[in-house]
């Protein structure tokens, strides 16, 4: 078990190294330097700037320096657009907000998704099933950036129940989390239904019934664990998508999270910021995927850590 963990951690580390390398060169091979599109600063300032960002050094040296700073010291360097602030400062400020948003959304998605998926599966082909699945399909089909404004319009502007923008307390969290969570709730509902129906067909469920267990025990003990495995597998990719989705939701609801900074950095061509945040987000996702994988080996005894 320990060896397995160590190996997986090492693997994850190399993935992060790969991402760092890929993103670094991706940005550097871009046609035109960072200053191309703007008016050129005077040559002496230009030289100073190049020195500050080590742009005067050979590319490989720059890469080695950057990789060492990031991977060893967790230091993403200064922002390109706001030279007096470091990328780490932005992360310190923005990430807790994005993380909170993501956690709330995930909780909503899992609660709504699993319960409606279970209802649909247990009352298969009933009215409940059809309406739950139609709702799920609707959830998958309505993008965040349509749903968000819709919520703002209904719950904010018309009903005045909830604030439509900002991040100053519990009632500010509701609409963004619902918006971000709904699409995943829909996917989880579909996966839950599919997984449960698959399990229902298994021989061992017939065995459980033949043993005279009550329907409650058959469902809770014999079906749930296997039936929810697809949902667990989905949580990894879902987290990755959610980090992307948070960019949109943060924009709509004016949430001061890290996703906004990432989008702004891409729009402002703040290269070090875009690079740093990409690596940071990827590392978080890789770590989360690792946790999900390990959780999976505990849930499914047939999977051996090798």
């Amino acid at each position: 078990m320990f060896r397995y963990l160590l190996r997986r951690l090492l693997g994850a580390f190399f993935v992060v190294v790969g991402i760092t390398t890929f993103s670094f060169f991706m940005i550097r091979i871009a046609p035109g330097g960072p200053f191309d599109s703007e008016k050129m600063p005077p040559p002496e300032i230009m030289r100073n700037l190049e020195k500050k960002y080590h742009l005067d050094e050979p590319l490989m040296l720059q890469y080695a320096r950057y990789a060492k700073d990031v991977l060893v010291h967790f230091d993403f360097g200064p922002s390109f657009r706001y030279p007096e602030r470091s990328v780490n400062e932005f992360i310190d400020l923005g990430f807790p907000v994005t993380l909170r948003l993501a956690i709330y959304s995930m909780i909503i998605a899992v609660l709504i998704g699993i319960s409606s998926g279970l209802i649909a599966a247990l009352y298969q082909n009933s009215r409940w099933d059809y309406s739950a699945m139609a709702f799920a399909m609707l959830g998958v089909s309505i993008p965040d950036f349509v749903l968000g404004p819709l919520f703002q319009l209904i719950f904010g502007l018309k009903l005045h129940w909830l604030p439509i923008a900002g991040w100053d307390g519990a009632n500010f969290y509701v609409l963004p989390s619902l918006t971000l969570g709904s699409m995943y709730a829909a996917s989880i509902a579909r996966l839950t239904r599919g997984g449960m129906l698959e399990i229902t067909r298994q021989d061992f469920i017939r065995t459980a019934r033949a043993k005279g267990l009550s329907e409650r025990v058959v469902i809770l003990r014999h079906m749930l664990k296997g039936g929810l495995l697809p949902v667990v597998t989905y949580l990894g990719p879902a987290a990755a998508f959610m980090m992307g989705g948070s960019m949109v939701v943060e924009k709509i609801f004016d949430v001061p999270g890290l996703g906004r900074h990432f989008v702004n950095s891409a729009l402002n061509r703040d290269y070090t910021m875009t690079l740093g945040l990409t690596i940071f987000f990827s590392a978080i996702i890789v770590l989360f995927n690792l946790i999900v994988d390990i959780a999976y080996t505990f849930l499914d005894p047939r999977v051996k850590y090798e």
Binding site: S23, A30, A240, M243, G244, A266, T278, I285, V286
Partner: peptide, 15 residues
């Protein structure tokens, strides 16, 4: 397992 949206955004912002 990677958040591909970020890479698309990098590509879009770079190119």
């Amino acid at each position: 397992g990677l958040p591909y949206m970020f890479f698309v955004i990098i590509v879009m912002s770079v190119f």
